[in-house]
Design a protein around this nucleic acid. Sequence first.
DNA 1: TAACTGTGGTTCATTATATGAAACTTTAAA
DNA 2: TTTAAAGTTTCATATAATGAACCACAGTTA
Lengths: 267, 267
Amino acid sequence: MDGIDSELRYRVQVLDRALDVLDCFTFTERELSLAEIVRKTGLNKTTIKRILSNLTRRKYLHQDPGTKKYRLGLRLFELGGIVFSSFSLRKAADHYMEYFRDKTGATVLMGTVMEDQLVYIDKREGHSLIRISSEIGWRRPLNYGMLGMVLLAYRDTRYVKKILGAYPLKPYTRNSIIDEGQFFTRLEEIRKRGYVIEREEAVEGIIGIAAPIKDYTEKTVAALGIALPIGQDKTGDLFNALANELKKACENISSNMGFKKKDSHTR
Amino acid sequence: MDGIDSELRYRVQVLDRALDVLDCFTFTERELSLAEIVRKTGLNKTTIKRILSNLTRRKYLHQDPGTKKYRLGLRLFELGGIVFSSFSLRKAADHYMEYFRDKTGATVLMGTVMEDQLVYIDKREGHSLIRISSEIGWRRPLNYGMLGMVLLAYRDTRYVKKILGAYPLKPYTRNSIIDEGQFFTRLEEIRKRGYVIEREEAVEGIIGIAAPIKDYTEKTVAALGIALPIGQDKTGDLFNALANELKKACENISSNMGFKKKDSHTR
DNA sequence: TAACTGTGGTTCATTATATGAAACTTTAAA
DNA sequence: TTTAAAGTTTCATATAATGAACCACAGTTA
């Protein structure tokens, strides 16, 4: 892609290292001690201590006075909130996300493309016992699951090829599409129907239904999806009905975002 | 408070400056050019350029290829998401927040205390035309509005005095309490009733109803509030009924958080 | 209770590394 | 076409980051 070493000439060592420190914290590793960070980064203890002191003073980290361990701080929550609030899509989709969550009891997710990756920008968690693991802010390859497929379906072939080159199709489950030809057929199908129904292709036991959201530029700017536990709906009629309803909802959201549907006779 | 210059001995200049750069971005100023950042920070152009390059490379900032302007990046959204997801209260309160939003059509807010300040950790935006301005992640003085009062009501007097010392009561509206004695009476009243009804004390035209959430430590860990547009309810009966319902809801959330109500005869 | 091990915290001489003035290159306005 | 302002790059300079070595403490082992 563009610039493997983009602007490495301007590299600032300490800053880079400080960001390495922040990178140590993840959804699963929320609390780290100085020593743990030293091990993870391989940097000198003093350097880490200095960086930690600074980040803590500026509230980018928070130190538990008792255990001395560090957590990500309030400032990151604030800055993240600024980014979060800038997704105007969220407001437009809010009502529908709740509607589908309440109707199905399942988890509803919204995702968009950022830097050639799928990013979850909002979700409504379902009440069901079967949960899919997903958090706002998580990134996935753009060819992953219902949202990825919808987002790719409306991009040109060159772009899709580029993505598949960078992130080859992986067998997440036994139903996952791993053949590129099949994948392109699938995208074609999404464009034709205006939605996707994905049966345990990303997560075992989960059926995904998703549709695209477009804005005034007529580009697909996001995808909205419902992650249902696989169930009793043998014929699939319920899923089809739900998919159509979701498609309608996404069309409404799209028109709120300024999308004007072309007259069908205009081609 | 604690350590005006906490650990300034370990100060790392570049890092501090890089964080100054991030501080330039706010909810209202989302996009900045290099020159604007230079003006805001007063630092040398080259230094800023170096810092921007690094932060951009690491996705803490994002540069618009067209306008060359910078925005806060995806990485901050991710890191913020990690902090956001760590508030388990959010999950416990989710259902009730939506319930009250749908019932009243007003905005529902949840706040907690962080570093002696009130921080909004979740919200459900109402459908009403009259909106209060509040974003997840925003901070306010702990004596501000319905959430602040509830959070302070269950703290000891010394702490409240300390907060009032640091942030004197301000006349946000003509109804705001600015007298400390009155303020303490108010807190007393909140403890007695178990909720607060605040009439245009924080925002003109808005009535706030809020109640405390406690956890297994029996401490008040958060407050949940509804911001209603001032209306036709002359007698206040509807507000009282709503307040009681909110109080009940918060008791339920509290018991989900492990709070065990003491038997009343135990005192 | 002494030796050991793994923490966090501190000092300070050394030089690698951040710095900023100045020059250069766009881009935008006049 | 000139002027101005923004963005970019270079490079000599010394400042500011570095990390080995050391201290202090707590918990564990012998």
